[in-house]
Design a protein around this nucleic acid. Structure first.
Length: 576
RNA sequence: GCACCCAUAGCUCAGUCUGGAUAGAGCGUUUGUUUGCGGAACAAAAGAUCGUGCGUUCGAAUCGCACUGGGUGCACCA
């Protein structure tokens, strides 16, 4: 990175000579024949100087001459023009070696300081009480955790919240189901109480198909719950306790933590008392109005979005009511305010099917003057889907996370007898599978893909790291042979490794600023691939001249992999 | 009906923001690599009219328009 900044400085000076200011981007070309770094700036800037030069190539020739004049430290060994006007830089090996070994690590952090110490709340996982924790929630948990890590690494002060679905009409349904067909004692003593609750929930929907009056009964019970009915409250609390036990186990297994409300996160019910005042406030401000059937809705100026309902005709609240209350509370809580009193960045990691709803929510919050554009972010993720269609709790066709975790571990056991290692490997496989791609597309649920232990997979990454560590251990144990003096040529592969290592910060910065961990995955996988090739091709411990340099490379690779995997929430293994 | 998302190799995907060189990976298929440090790896081969058409451009997977196919959402679920 240091080196890249140096190069950019030179290029900037050159462009200034021509009175040009364009964004300079250096790329590592896919094809090593094109040099170690390349830039298309001559082509981009050509439009502005086409009166002085005949072609981008001619312009590039002049640029190269200027660069050579300014390159006093002899960073470049060769600069060439290629294709329509690319400038390809071949770096001087001695220089490269020197800057590599003298790298100043303290500078790295400030290079990706996007957050500037501002505060960010990342809300993720957010499972529903009394519903299964499925691979769907797994996505939000994994991606959200990583996004939080990335923001933290790039200079934000991050608060991790879990917006549990512990309030809503569903509890009316659940209560009806328990009262009609369930047995509390039996549920409490079951090995997996949530499973029993879900079975009851499914039964409710089956029965409600035949007898729609059940839905009215459910609404009534939710109303009772909101009004503080004792029986309703007691049943509701039990559902929460049963569910929470399961969630805690899963988070522990995945190594995911939350910081708010003593690690539990603020569920929707926490905001219960703020709902009626909020509705009153919105009505008073004229932002919310009573709709034709008696519900209360937020209408948008010029009907740019369809109205957002915040209270049903019977007065009970909805998801939107609770979300608005949540965001208002956050806004007013000093814990989340920036030093200058401004609102924090609030990120919701929630399925893409709610994109329209979040548009409504964010616009409402903007109209209210609570949050400015860009302070509310919806990180979407696609659904897991079966070939046959969408998973649905109501229909009972879900894949329980526990089943996935067990199967994954079982598969990893083929490689190791150690259960802890198998567990770590399987969790890495699941996490990587979710993080390695753009999050917004749906994923076809495929056991082979999700449990993949080879190629572009979590275990591949862990393996590369474990190998690097293994070498470093051996190097530390064995006496280093006296270093012979002499010059050696850096191979193309080693050069490529060095230039790749330099791109770590760029990858983190992009992943963080776009809330997309997959950019970091792409980078790390590429690095691991180059490392594996290098590992396979060149001796490290048994080399004489190059030993020190190569060990340094291995050290740099292992620490970069560790940093990267850590940001993805993947636990590394020294041995596997 | 309206809105948003998606379409790249047999399969799963990256690349699209910011147009640029021969469109990259992984899986699967075929062939090779063991005493040189971990074969969950490495090297290589075969495999792509980048959904279709038109346009902008010196140049389009990438930008614009139209269309087709798939997904999601759209007033009392979350």
């Amino acid at each position: 990175m240091d080196k890249e900044i140096l190069i950019k400085e030179i290029l900037e000076k050159v462009l200034n000579n021509f009175g040009l200011t364009i964004q300079i981007r250096l790329e590592k070309p896919a094809n090593p024949d094109f040099g170690d770094l390349s830039s298309n700036l001559a082509m981009i800037a050509y439009g502005q100087v086409s009166d002085k030069f005949k072609s981008p190539r001619e312009f590039a020739t002049v640029i190269i001459e200027k660069i050579k004049e300014l390159d006093q430290e002899k960073i470049f060994e060769e600069i060439t023009i290629a294709g329509p006007g690319f400038i390809n830089f071949k770096l001087n090996s001695d220089q490269l070696l020197k800057t590599f070994s003298q790298k100043d690590k303290s500078k790295e952090i400030e290079l990706i300081n996007l957050g500037l110490g501002k505060k960010a709340i990342v809300e993720y996982s957010s499972p529903n009480i009394a519903k299964p924790f499925t691979i769907g929630h797994l996505r939000s948990t994994i991606i959200g955790d990583s996004v939080a890590n990335l923001l933290e690494a790039s200079g934000y002060q991050v608060f991790r919240d879990n917006h549990l679905g512990d309030w809503g009409t569903q509890f009316g349904k659940q209560i009806v189901a328990i009262k009609r067909w369930g047995n509390e004692e039996e549920i409490a003593n079951a090995e997996n109480p949530v499973e029993k609750l879900v079975a009851l929930y499914v039964k409710f929907h089956e029965e409600a198909e035949k007898d729609p009056s059940l839905d009215d009964e459910a609404r009534l019970w939710f109303k009772k719950l909101e009004d503080g009915d004792e029986e309703a409250r007691a049943l509701w609390q039990k559902c929460i306790d049963w569910s929470f036990k399961e969630f805690a186990t899963i988070y522990e297994y995945l190594g995911v933590k939350f910081t708010e409300n003593n690690g539990r996160g603020y569920g929707e019910s926490f905001f219960e008392n703020m709902l009626q005042p909020l509705i009153a406030e919105l009505k008073e401000k004229g932002i919310a109005q009573i709709g034709k059937e008696g519900a209360i809705l937020i209408f948008y100026p010029n009907d740019q979005l369809s109205p957002l309902m915040i209270a049903k005709k019977d007065g009970s609240t909805l998801y939107a009511t609770r979300d608005l209350a949540t965001d208002k509370w956050r806004l007013e809580n000093p814990r989340y305010q920036n030093a200058d009193g401004s609102a924090p960045l609030v990120v919701n990691e929630v399925g893409g099917e709610q994109a329209f709803y979040f548009q409504q929510l964010y616009l409402a919050e903007q109209i209210l003057g609570w949050y400015k554009k860009g302070q509310r972010v919806h990180v979407k993720h696609g659904l897991y889907r079966f070939k046959e269609g969408k998973m649905s709790t109501r229909k009972g066709n879900v894949i329980w996370l526990q089943e996935v975790l067990n199967k994954a571990k079982e598969k990893a056991m083929a490689f190791t007898k150690d259960e802890e290692i198998a567990k770590a490997v399987s969790v890495a496989a699941l996490k990587w599978n979710d993080l390695k791609r753009k999050s917004d597309a749906d994923i076809n649920f495929d056991w082979d893909e999700i449990l993949n232990l080879q190629g572009n997979s979590g275990p591949y990454m862990l393996y590369a790291y474990a190998r690097a560590k293994s070498i470093l251990r051996k190097a530390a144990e064995s006496e280093a042979k006296p270093v012979e003096n002499g010059d050696f040529e850096i191979s193309a592969l080693e050069k490529s490794l060095i230039t790749s290592l330099d791109e770590f910060n760029k990858a983190v910065a992009r992943a963080a600023s776009e809330f997309s961990p997959h950019y970091l995955c792409n980078y790390l996988f590429d690095l691991a691939q180059i490392f594996n090739s290098f590992y396979n091709k060149y001796p490290i411990l048994n080399s004489s001249l190059e030993r020190q340099f190569r060990l340094q490379l291995v050290e740099a690779v292992s620490s970069t992999l560790a940093k990267g995997l850590n940001l993805l929430g993947i636990k590394t293994l020294e041995k596997m």
